[in-house]
């Protein structure tokens, strides 16, 4: 390509580290040092500075796509991170602005200029994945009690969760470092009026997940609970009963950063280098807390 003005004033940088304007539109330009005045030609395979000016591509006819980037061996486009010092001034950028901040989140201002949004990222966002229901806990059978990873003394000789006691149940067989779980919680063979509380981290909250009012009842309720970590187990919930009852937990869905974390069903593979949120802390089991339905 011919260079109409001042090619000798530009340094040529590494191949592929090219520079230029943004697609159907603008883009403040440039890669590294090679300074050039606004109005100089952009050189392929080199870095070019446009100073503080914006380089714009505009169509000569309506409906044209302005810029196509094609790389058969690697990425086509890189947006160098916008430094933290540019915030919050960047909020006044024009509609259609796209940037990547210094922690890797992509931002954009909507076409109507009414809002800024940040693209959901596996580093902090989460999505809901439904599964065929799996019975993660059934205190009535030895097999159903296998997921209990806390002290089994909380169970009576029949396997019922004792009144005033709590257990920790691991769901690691079904999910890797999940954020939360949706499930159906059931009380069976109740021994009197009572309730169950399910929680995932910290001390037992003053809240109930399932209530009943007499002995011999079978009742269920949907629960949505954060998952915590306990020792080597990274996806656990704690269950507390204020009166003795058998307990069933049938899991129907996990909330995760990426569907590949769910081990049940036909989930997509994890992308390389997937960044995930950290799990919450372990549930604190205090069986002597005051009970409240």
């Amino acid at each position: 390509m011919s260079n109409p003005k001042g090619a000798d004033r530009r340094a040529f940088l590494k191949r592929g580290g090219a520079v230029a304007a943004g697609a159907a539109v603008t883009g403040a330009v440039v890669a590294s040092p090679a300074a050039a005045d606004p109005g100089d030609a952009v050189i392929l395979g080199a870095g070019t500075s446009a100073g503080d000016a914006t380089t714009s591509l505009r169509p000569s006819e309506p409906g044209q796509q302005m810029l196509a980037l094609e790389n058969t061996e690697g990425p086509a486009l890189r947006l160098a991170p916008t430094p933290g010092s540019a915030f919050p001034a960047v909020y006044s950028s024009e509609p259609g602005t796209v940037l990547v901040d210094q922690v890797g989140d992509m931002w954009n201002r909507s076409a109507d200029g009414q809002q800024w949004g940040w693209v959901w990222s596996t580093a902090w966002a989460q999505t809901s994945v439904s599964i065929d229901p799996v019975r993660a806990l059934d205190t009535r059978t030895a097999e159903g009690r296998q997921a209990i990873v806390s002290d089994r003394s909380a169970l009576d000789s029949a396997g019922r969760l004792r009144g005033g006691q709590s257990i920790v149940v691991s769901l690691d067989a079904y999910v890797t470092a999940g954020q939360s779980v949706k499930a159906n919680l059931t009380a069976v063979d109740t021994t009197g009026g009572g309730y169950l509380t399910v929680w995932g981290s910290g001390p037992r909250p003053t809240a109930s997940s399932l209530n009943w009012w007499a002995a011999g009842q079978v009742l269920s309720a949907f629960v949505f609970v954060p998952l915590g970590a306990s020792g080597a187990f990274r996806s656990v919930v704690a269950i507390h009963a204020n009166t003795a009852t058998h307990v069933l937990l049938d899991v129907t869905s996990f909330v995760v950063a990426h569907p590949s974390q769910v081990k049940v069903g036909d989930q997509p593979p994890a992308p390389p280098g997937l960044a995930l949120r950290a799990a919450a802390g372990a549930p604190e089991i205090h069986s002597n807390q005051e009970d409240s339905e």
């Binding site: 590494k14 191949r15 592929g16 580290g17 090219a18 520079v19 230029a20 304007a21 943004g22 697609a23 159907a24 539109v25 603008t26 883009g27 403040a28 330009v29 440039v30 890669a31 590294s32 503080d52 914006t54 980037l69 094609e70 790389n71 690697g74 990425p75 086509a76 486009l77 890189r78 947006l79 160098a80 916008t82 430094p83 540019a86 001034a89 960047v90 950028s93 024009e94 259609g96 602005t97 796209v98 940037l99 990547v100 931002w107």
Partner: peptide
Amino acid sequence: EPTLTLDNDQGPALRL
């Protein structure tokens, strides 16, 4: 390497 890099150390790199 990327075919195109846009770099602005004072503000956003791209506007569509």
